[in-house]
């Protein structure tokens, strides 16, 4: 099916118009929307993540790929519902920047890449209290992802880990942390399950954690 490969390549190249055109062509050829999503879009974003980790592409290229994917999803989503094959989520991730910290770009990049990789993302925004993280986790989450850019706010991550523990959710929810001052060692010290230094590795870490869980 060359149209699938062309769709995939258009997303990797960040060519939104071409991606939409190839998806439309694929639908006209009778390819189910679910297949276009799985083997075209999600597969493309996995390739984008691989290229990023290998230093072949950088954040701008990752962004335009996600943009091409989103433009194509606008076409596919109504059909996914019609087909009765709503895109199966890879898992639900609650994400936010911790209390006291208003930085959002790192968190946003992770959210973009997670969504592009097929995860359902609940974005709580910035300056998120432990109570709000807990509330969102109780509503059903597989992973809680926290971001902090300041040494003065990174300590608030521990309060979220503790709140989830007190609520009896610690065995049900995986926790991942990231942000400029965060290290693997810090993640271990506060009892998080993982740390990722960039958006692509965050997706990989979430996949890894959920696989461990399963």
């Amino acid at each position: 099916m060359p149209v699938l490969e062309e769709l995939r390549q258009a997303v990797v190249d960040g060519q939104a118009k071409a991606a939409v055109a190839r998806a439309t062509q694929g639908l006209e050829e009778g390819i189910p929307a679910e297949v276009l999503l799985r083997d075209g879009l999600i597969s493309a974003m996995q390739e984008v993540g691989r290229l990023f980790e290998e230093g072949e592409i950088f954040v701008p290229e990752m962004l335009v790929s996600a943009r091409a994917m989103n433009a194509t999803l606008v076409v596919l989503k109504p059909l996914l519902a019609t087909e009765g094959s709503e895109a199966r989520s890879e898992g639900k991730v609650v994400i936010g920047t911790v209390q006291g910290d208003l930085h959002e770009i790192g968190k946003n990049l992770v959210a973009i890449m997670l969504e592009g990789s097929g995860f359902e993302v609940v974005d709580l925004g910035t300056d998120v209290s432990p109570e709000r993280f807990l509330e969102a986790a109780e509503a059903g989450a597989d992973v809680v992802a926290m971001s902090a850019l300041l040494t003065t706010t990174m300590t608030n991550m521990k309060a979220v880990v503790e709140a989830l523990g007190r609520a009896g959710l610690r065995d049900k929810v995986r926790i991942i942390v990231g942000g400029a001052p965060i290290t693997d060692r810090f993640a271990s010290e506060i009892g998080a399950d993982g740390y990722a230094p960039d958006a692509s590795k965050a997706v990989r870490k979430v996949r890894e954690l959920l696989a461990v869980k399963a």
Binding site: D13, G14, Q15, A16, I57, F58, V59, P60, E61, L63, V64, R67, A68
Partner: peptide, 23 residues
């Protein structure tokens, strides 16, 4: 803008056309 986004400075202006367009 591309460098602030983390692009390779050696090829910032030579990034993908879509990335340059975004910037």
């Amino acid at each position: 803008v591309l460098r602030a986004l983390g692009a390779d400075s050696g090829r910032a202006g030579k990034g993908s056309p879509a990335a340059v367009g975004l910037a």
